[in-house]
Amino acid sequence: MKKTLAIFVVLLLALGFCFAQGATEDTYPNKTINLTVPYGAGGTTDLTARALANAMGEKLGTTINVVNTPGAGGSAGSLNVQNAKVDGYTMLANGMLAFTTMPINGYTDKTYRDWDIWIATFAPNAIIVPKNSPYNTIEDLIHAIQQNPGKITAGTAGIGSGGHFGAEVMKAIAGAPYKHITYAGGAPALTATLAGEVDFCPQLLAEYKDLIISGDVKCLATLSDTDIELAPGVVVKSILHSYPEAKKFVPMGEVTGILIPKGMSEANLEKIDAAFNYAVKDQAFLDFAALKSFSVIPKDRAESQKFLDSFASKACYLMYDAGAVTIDPAKFGITR
């Protein structure tokens, strides 16, 4: 009896084994896809990823799970995806500022050229100060940085975050350094600004749109090249009005997209192409983008690479010239 049962069990397991093997060779996608967001839940990248994931999953006929793996300024999660098996079931959603500067930060030798990328949205930076701050215009703040080099504090979401780039633009305009205070994310940096712990916050406009409208913080300028109307009567001025020489840096902001390491078959990539094109036209996604003041700038794989050639150059050399990194972007073939 015992023997019969044992044999039966082995047969059962073997059968299941074959069945499982057969299933994985089926057409892509046949199981849940994991979309890694290398930041905490609730942030800009996370929200964009979730909105995209839902619509893309609909088109692909599967569920796309968002997995948050915060840590190390987004590089930890990105490296996890880079090292995972390239089977189309592990995708990355990331901001391109942190992503394209990973090689010059020394995290990896691979650049954006080693990935297939679909760019979805653009969100500009904006410079805000606490409600009771002495600075009322962007000129006030720039003068203060010039007069107290290294004393004016900027609260950002960390090294290589969108806010860090915004602060570097301020440094380039002022020609004098600021004091960089890093927080564990956009939300804590914003709380610190509300509490008056830092002098200004150069994160993304989307993160504090509502607080600007309600008057809880003062917005001095946006690093977009045009003025932005947040609500009737509430217009955020472009920095170009005061400092036209900033032209070479703006529009500065976070560009977010979906990424997969190169190595997938063209047939499967085309399925993702279709899903992406469907998602960026999805009404729920567009509503979400409007709510957060993102611009939807969908780019396919070829366009994204082309866009990133100039974007990566701008981002990498801004950091390199500011002395924030020591690895020359030219080492990775990123030219000015």
Binding site: M1, K2, L5, A6, V9, L12
Partner: peptide, 10 residues
Amino acid sequence: SFLKTILVAI
């Protein structure tokens, strides 16, 4: 017992 163990596991 052996039998019960296998059953519980499955």
